[in-house]
C-alpha cells in the first residue's frame, strides 16, 4: 500500500472477500485504494488448496459506477500451495453502468485452473472521491439552497480532533472545505466532494470544541448516497 500513503488518502484494511472454503482453496482478501487519480483493487491471493493454481483472470459484473479492469490481472507464474501473492488491479470508470442495490455493491468473478469463483466486494465510497471535487463557492450556495430539505440527511459523528485537523484530514481524501465559519465557538464547515461519475455531494459539519459528538449533514440529489458518505467520513476521521 506504499503508493497509497503518498497522498495520505485513507485506505481500509484488507478484508476477506472470498474465504478459501468457498473458493475451492483460493482465498482473496482486498481493499480499494486511489492513487494518482485511479481506483485500484488491492488484493491478496492465497492458495490454500492441495494443488498449484494458474491461469488467473478477473471480471467485474456491471456496477453503479462503471468500474472495469484497466488491465488484465497480472499473475505471471503459478501460485504454489500455501503461497501468497499481492495483486493490484487498476480500474477505469468508463464501463457499462447498471444501478446496484446497495449502490456500492460490486460483484467479482475470479477464474483459475480449478474453477470460476464469485464474490462480492462493496466499494467504500471514498475510493471514488475525485481530486477535482472542490465546488465553486457560488455553485455550492446555489445547490445547497436549491435542494429541498428532503435531500438532507443528518448524522451524529464522533470527531476527536480540532476543526483544523479535520479539514486537513478530509482534504487528503478529496473532501474539500469550501467555506467555514465560527459562531459562538461553534465551527461550521461547508464541504464538497465529487464522485467518479461527476455527482457532487455537499456536507456541513457542526462541531463544538470539547464536545466529540459533531453533526454531519449531507445534502445531495440522490439520498441513497448519504449513508455511504457518512461511512466514509467515519472511516476517514476515526482512523
Amino acid at each position: 500500500s506504499g503508493p497509497g500513503l503518498a497522498t495520505g488518502m485513507y485506505v481500509e484494511p484488507k478484508t476477506v472477500w472470498l474465504p478459501a472454503a468457498k473458493g475451492k482453496g483460493l482465498e482473496v482478501s482486498g481493499t480499494f485504494g486511489r492513487r494518482q487519480g485511479q481506483v485500484f483493487m488491492d488484493m491478496t491471493f492465497t492458495n490454500k488448496a492441495m494443488q498449484q493454481m494458474s491461469q488467473f483472470a478477473i471480471q467485474l459484473n456491471k456496477n453503479s459506477f462503471g468500474l472495469v479492469p484497466a488491465s488484465p490481472l497480472s499473475i505471471a507464474s503459478p501460485l504454489n500451495m500455501n503461497q501468497t501473492l499481492d495483486v493490484s488491479l487498476p480500474l477505469n470508470t468508463n464501463g457499462p453502468v447498471q444501478r446496484m442495490d446497495p449502490i456500492n455493491s460490486l460483484q467479482v468473478a475470479v477464474k483459475n485452473n480449478i474453477d470460476v469463483l464469485y464474490f462480492s466486494s462493496p466499494i467504500p465510497l471514498h475510493a471514488l472521491f475525485v481530486e477535482t471535487g472542490e465546488m465553486e463557492r457560488r455553485d455550492f450556495l446555489n445547490e445547497w439552497k436549491n435542494l429541498p430539505a428532503a435531500n438532507e440527511v443528518q448524522f451524529p459523528i464522533e470527531i476527536h480532533m480540532t476543526a483544523d485537523e479535520a479539514v486537513q484530514k478530509l482534504k487528503t481524501s478529496n473532501i474539500f472545505t469550501v467555506a467555514r465559519r465560527n459562531l459562538d465557538g461553534q465551527d461550521m464547515l461547508y464541504q464538497s466532494l465529487k464522485l467518479t461519475n461527476n455527482i457532487f455531494i455537499m456536507a456541513e459539519i457542526k462541531m463544538q470544541p470539547g464536545n466529540p459528538t459533531a453533526t454531519l449533514s449531507i445534502k445531495c440529489q440522490l439520498v441513497d448516497f448519504s449513508n455511504l458518505v457518512h461511512e466514509s467520513y467515519k472511516a476517514i476521521l476515526q482512523n
Binding site: R137, R138, L141, W144, A179, R181, L183, D184, Q186, M188, Y190, E204, K206
Partner: peptide
C-alpha cells in the same frame, strides 16, 4: 469581482447563522 466575493462571504455567514441554532 471583489463585490461578488463579499456577497459570497456574507451568504456563507448567513447560511451558517441560519443553521447554528435550530
Amino acid at each position: 469581482h471583489i463585490g461578488g466575493d463579499i456577497d459570497l462571504d456574507e451568504s456563507f455567514s448567513k447560511l451558517a447563522e441560519s443553521r447554528s441554532n435550530p
